[in-house]
């Protein structure tokens, strides 16, 4: 196919041809099979590229989330069939369950009598960062995870900022930076980051909304907190907690 045909395809697809030109173009589509086939492939590739490149962030987030769920599912399967081999993971689950039972019990009894505060909700769970980079990032990731999980937010923040420099598109890292910023009372930084994530298309969008609400709660801006939490859709993970919090604040 000649180059000028491809230029013509593009003009046709972007609606830049005059009506006469369109008629001539469509006549060729009907009469020249080779032209027709090339055009259809061109069109298909355009839509493929558009989707692949435009939604790269969203599909990367989907794939990462899928992998997490899949890994969990299949490691559970192995547990059943291979017995004790993965006891370490199992132990972790037990602790996690125990911790969350205590956490909710605490939340329940405590909240009966007092206004909710940020510290009622600052259980972030243990983080485990998605590794997509080279070996030299591994150390930093380890520092960030350990510091974050130990509640050492100053060092966690430092490591996260370094990681983000190397991987500026990584939304998950930005979410954790935002959480550390809330912990360190750097609300401007936190709110800006969360605002960006909320408006994006990633899997962390609803988490960001939830934390944005918590950030406002910690700033004692209850109205803003409620307004933000009300935007959480029903299928969001934190929907129920958000509803409970809204009820208390309203």
């Amino acid at each position: 196919m000649e180059d000028k045909n491809y230029i013509l395809f593009e003009s046709y697809l972007s609606g830049e041809l005059s009506s006469d030109e369109v008629a001539a173009f469509e006549l060729r589509l009907n009469t020249e099979p080779e032209f027709n086939q090339a055009f259809n492939t061109y069109k298909e590739l355009s839509s493929f590229l558009e989707n692949k490149l435009e939604n790269e962030e969203a599909s990367a987030a989907f794939e990462a989330n899928l992998k997490k769920i899949s890994d969990k599912h299949f490691s559970k399967d192995e547990l059943v069939s291979e017995g004790k081999q993965k006891s370490k993971v199992f132990k972790f689950y037990k602790y996690a369950v125990a911790a969350s039972v205590i956490f909710f019990l605490g939340l329940f009894t405590f909240n009966q009598f007092s206004n909710p505060t940020y510290s009622d909700f600052d259980n972030h769970g243990a983080i485990s960062l998605t590794v997509r980079g080279e070996q030299n990032q591994q150390d930093l990731i380890k520092i960030a995870e350990e510091a974050f999980n130990a509640g050492d937010y100053i060092n966690a923040e430092e490591a996260l900022i370094d990681l983000i420099k190397q991987d500026v598109e990584n939304i998950e890292l930005k979410l954790y930076q935002a959480i550390t910023s809330i912990e360190l009372n750097k609300f401007d930084v936190a709110d800006n980051l969360l605002e960006d994530i909320k408006n994006g298309n990633s899997a962390f969008k609803h988490k960001a909304t939830w934390y944005h609400g918590l950030s406002k709660l910690k700033q004692k801006d209850h109205k803003a907190c409620v307004d933000i939490l009300k935007t959480l859709p029903e299928h969001a993970d934190d929907y129920e907690d958000a509803q409970a919090l809204i009820k208390k604040l309203d």
Binding site: N5, Y6, E10, A38, T41, Y42, L49
Partner: peptide, 22 residues
């Protein structure tokens, strides 16, 4: 840039059409 875009997708069209798999 406009012209280059169409030619690049054109190039891709040729690669794809030339593959037996397609």
């Amino acid at each position: 840039a406009r012209k280059k875009k169409s030619l690049c997708i054109g190039k891709l069209t040729e690669l794809v059409q030339g593959s037996p798999k397609f």
